[in-house]
Design a binder for these strands. Structure first.
Lengths: 395, 395
DNA sequence: AGAAGATAATGTAAGTTTCGAAAAAAGATG
DNA sequence: CATCTTTTTTCGAAACTTACATTATCTTCT
């Protein structure tokens, strides 16, 4: 008993407009005629709708295409400078603020280092607010042109106006981060878990493109997953769906930092791999260390491939996705070196029918796409819920 | 990039009508005024819409309610004999055909025993077709009054006009069961996995009522799960989502009949429990045998609770559901005796935040609800897609 | 008993929105 | 320059919901 929502005749317009805009965005450029075909709308509707969008300069003309004996098609595209999106990556060691145009091209960027112990919410918020000012002035963009600010943070984010955050690694427990930020900026805010934001980016601009039924798996120090069904990400009742890393794959197995035992994360998370290979995790430079371990041929490496394969197999069986994308810096390192072994383990541990329906691929965006993912939250909102409210002239 | 569908102004009507009908169905009875409140539609819309539905006798008046000083409200309800639904349970030992009215009250029922080796698709189809005739004539219902036939089968069913079935236990591999049946009856067909159908029933009429975000877990000889997000069941790209039983909980653990090792089913499936308790599975009467084992205090019993708890915890972490319903004959037996232990194991193996958001309860419909679930498939279609096509008077 | 008041349900006119068909626009071709 | 072809816009019709006004039906007060 869900989706019980009254529909009025204006929702039709809103929905069709969003669909048209989305189609045009992901097609790149298309003529009105193409849009008729792509959207299924009538010529009249496409004409009036594109007319509106042109007038609002949300879209623009992009040249003509020569025709064979008729009126040439005028190509249309989304105006990449109609608006901008700010994407923020809040990580353990830094706060990064980036400005993107609508094509998700980076226009400006600024980094603030965080010292290990300094994760006060207020400090982070100050960095973000300062960063917004910096990237805007660097790129010569005014606040009015910014469609919103997306922020990716570690931890669980509860949706709502306050965006309450629980982030163990930061020592944040119930921080109303949205409230904190909105005190300093009038821009619309979108806060989500960084891994989920990145999953969104991979889904829209990376290896997940075109899949309506996908799982994006992020492996770094922690391990998470974004489950997408019919184009919508699975949120769960308290917005914490996707905690894949604490799936138990060996009851009573290795202790995990979550306090449990046998979690997937305790086998394939960055620290876990190093520890199992007998390398100290006290040093800095895990990245190089991990690369060395993976290339060393330690028995722990082959095991890691198996564990990851098992974890993926569990997803294949339960969710039967069209595609699984492996991302995160550890995920990418593992995938580059061990993809055949991982696939074999996944195949051996899943049912033949769903396995055959799933393609397991590596992420394409690299491990630094959190800010892009965060900006994608803004983009999503823009594409779904673009105003469509024309001001009615009075008198 | 999904749900790209053109909407026209008629879809508004269709959607609102479906919503109103659904609301009325699950409310039981309501006045037009109540419906205004419940649906959010305007008085006029509710008035015309109920007028249509009354004329088509899909709904009916159900008395008045005295008011305190005004025109009394006329109560409306769905007409339970507007149409009927046939539900079929195809199991290893029998084919059961039941007839339900729209209130899902059983009106007639017939059973056909299947001999262990006799699972030819043709035979099963003949039983079903014969059964439909029997229940219809027993209840005095004509074919024209039947809205459809829902069939629950073991195995994986691929959606589509043919309803191709892969059922290992039956030796069916790619049987186009829908084609087989539709050759013998003009009624609309809905075929799905029996466990999923039952999950649907539990969701609508059992312990899952009202939850938009739920997982229904079925434990019998096999183990499966129905994942529901926002009221829609998770199908997966090839309709085989929900194979929870072959989730690996102990890498390299007990061998499972699927050929893998360490599957959940190899620990909490009926045979698995008996085997681990040292009881032969060759005998008949597993049900009594299992009850005896569970009451015996064998160490295998406590372990079973733990394994089930771990399995549930994995679901809690990954999907963050509002509710988990435990069903299936083994699930119910376990739940009745060991629910506290199961809950404790689930709590210990899941993250605190999502666990707190989930309530884990026992199914309410008993283990024989597959036919009801199958009929629910018909009901769902009726509520979503009721005709709404008025014949336009000509000239 | 009759009038007044209150609540429920139904018409009516207005405002959106999409659609099909016809008209207009814009270049290619001979 | 006239004709053809293809794209795009315009126009009237049909379908819906909504707000407002009207009718229906029961209770209560005088």
């Amino acid at each position: 008993m869900a989706r019980l929502e009254r529909r009025t005749v204006r929702d039709v317009r809103k929905g069709n407009r969003a669909m048209l805009l989305r189609t045009l965005y992901f097609t790149g450029s298309a003529s009105r005629n193409d849009l008729i075909r792509l959207t299924g709308l009538s010529a009249a509707t496409v004409s009036t709708m594109t007319g509106d969008l042109l007038e609002e300069s949300i879209i623009m003309e992009a040249g003509q295409v020569d025709s064979d004996g008729g009126r040439p098609r005028v190509l249309l595209r989304v105006n990449p400078t109609y608006g901008y999106a700010v994407g923020v990556d809040v990580a353990e060691t830094h706060v990064r603020v980036e400005l993107f145009d609508l094509e998700m091209k980076e226009r400006a960027k600024v980094d603030y280092a965080l010292r290990p112990a300094r994760h006060d919410p207020e400090l982070v918020a100050r960095h973000i607010l300062a960063g917004i000012d910096v990237v805007l002035s660097d790129a010569g963009v005014t606040t009015g042109q910014v469609l919103g600010v997306g922020v990716g943070v570690p931890g669980i984010v509860r949706r709502g106006p306050d965006f309450v955050i629980h982030a163990k690694t930061f020592g944040w427990d119930g921080v109303p981060f949205g409230t904190l930020l909105s005190a300093g900026t009038p821009l619309p805010l979108y806060v989500d878990n960084g891994a989920k934001a990145m999953g969104q980016a991979e889904l829209w601009f990376g290896s997940g493109r075109g899949a309506g039924n996908a799982v994006i798996v992020l492996i770094g120090s922690g391990v998470g997953a974004t489950v997408v069904s019919d184009g919508a990400t699975f949120q769960g009742v308290s917005s914490s769906a996707g905690e894949w890393g604490h799936t138990k794959i060996i009851v009573g197995g290795r202790p995990c930092r979550c306090g449990g035992r046998g979690c997937l994360e305790a086998y394939i998370g960055a620290e876990a791999i190093l520890e199992r290979a007998g390398v100290s995790t006290q040093t800095t430079g895990w990245q190089e260390e991990l690369a060395r371990v993976l290339d060393s041929g330690s028995p722990a490496v082959a095991e890691t491939a198996t564990y990851l394969g098992v974890g993926l197999a569990n997803l294949v069986n339960l969710l039967n996705p069209e595609r699984i994308v492996i991302g995160g810096w550890v995920g990418l390192m593992l995938g580059e070196r061990l993809l055949p072994e991982i696939l074999q383990a996944a195949a051996e541990n899943s049912l033949a029918q769903p396995y055959a329906a799933t393609s397991i691929v590596l992420g394409r965006l690299g491990p630094d796409a959190v800010a892009l993912g965060a900006a994608t939250l803004v983009l999503r909102n823009f594409l779904d819920a673009t105003p469509a409210s024309r001001v009615t002239a009075a008198g």
